[in-house]
């Protein structure tokens, strides 16, 4: 589904990603954990090319992104993204937030998109908020709308960039609950997170990133119960 090959990313002189190879298969829920500054978010943002890789390539459904930069917009339609800061469009209602892309990109008619939006809002438990503006919603509600918005494009994979880090603690649960239900429905997901409980319970694969590389990878059981790498052990001893 997604192949990451020898991915390098520099910000000026700073090498943030130092050669990442990864394979993300259909139905995988990959949780990316690790210390701040380890390159987790940059790795995620490179997958849909919000950050342009300096070297290496990303293959999405057998298509090389770096060789198809002209068709980047089509590629991105297959890769949904949920941001730490939600990034809902404040000048549109919740419903309009969700229908904008499918309608403008001619994936659906306005009526179809509205039906789909209502169905998705139902799934994230916010059907009654369809006509509200985002600023009237709580952080948890905003993030659930953001998930619905990403789902509206029927992406092949969903990227989550620390989706609960900007939330008040009591709202973390409702967002994780929605993400969990997606994972149980076999959605392909890559989740950068500090929620170790979620990673352990919902993830089927864990990437431990540190210093710009994936320094350890394995099942939740491998990583959380039998970590091999010294850095992984040290990190987990601090956060668990």
């Amino acid at each position: 589904m997604i192949e990451v090959k020898n991915l390098h990313k520099y910000f000026g002189e700073l090498e943030v990603l130092k050669g990442i190879d990864a394979h993300i298969g259909k139905g995988d829920c990959v949780c990316v954990i690790g210390p701040s500054g380890g390159g987790k978010s940059t790795f995620l943002r490179c997958i849909n090319l919000l950050e342009m890789p300096t070297k290496g390539d990303i293959w999405i459904e057998g298509v090389s992104a770096m060789h198809n930069l002209k068709n980047l917009d089509q590629l991105r339609q297959k890769v949904g993204m949920v941001f730490q800061q939600f990034n809902l469009f404040p000048h549109m209602t919740v419903k309009e937030n969700i229908t904008l892309a499918p309608v403008k990109l001619k994936k659906m008619t306005k009526a179809e998109a509205t039906d789909r939006a209502m169905e998705l809002l139902g799934r994230v438990g916010l059907a009654e908020k369809a006509e509200e503006y985002p600023n009237r919603l709580s952080g948890g509600q905003k993030q659930r709308v953001a998930i619905a918005r990403a789902l509206a494009m029927d992406p092949d994979v969903l990227l989550f960039d620390e989706p609960t880090s900007a939330l008040d603690p009591e709202m973390v649960g409702e967002v994780l609950e929605v993400m969990k239900s997606l994972a149980l429905n076999n959605a392909t997901m890559v989740v950068v997170t500090h929620e170790m409980g979620f990673a352990r319970e919902v993830g089927n694969r864990i990437f431990f990133m540190d210093g710009g590389v994936i320094s350890e990878e394995g099942t939740p059981d491998d990583i959380f119960n039998h970590p091999q790498n010294a850095r992984t052990k040290e990190f987990l001893s601090k956060v668990l």
């Binding site: 917009d73 991105r76 941001f83 990034n87």
Partner: peptide, 27 residues
């Protein structure tokens, strides 16, 4: 207008022009 707005638009597959027109300029 916050950079995240542009990123959200682009991540949905909207072109730079559409993102500008429908998301950034209205704000």
């Amino acid at each position: 207008v916050d950079r995240g707005q542009t990123e959200a638009g682009r991540s949905l597959g909207l072109s730079a022009g559409s993102t500008m027109l429908f998301i950034v300029i209205p704000q």
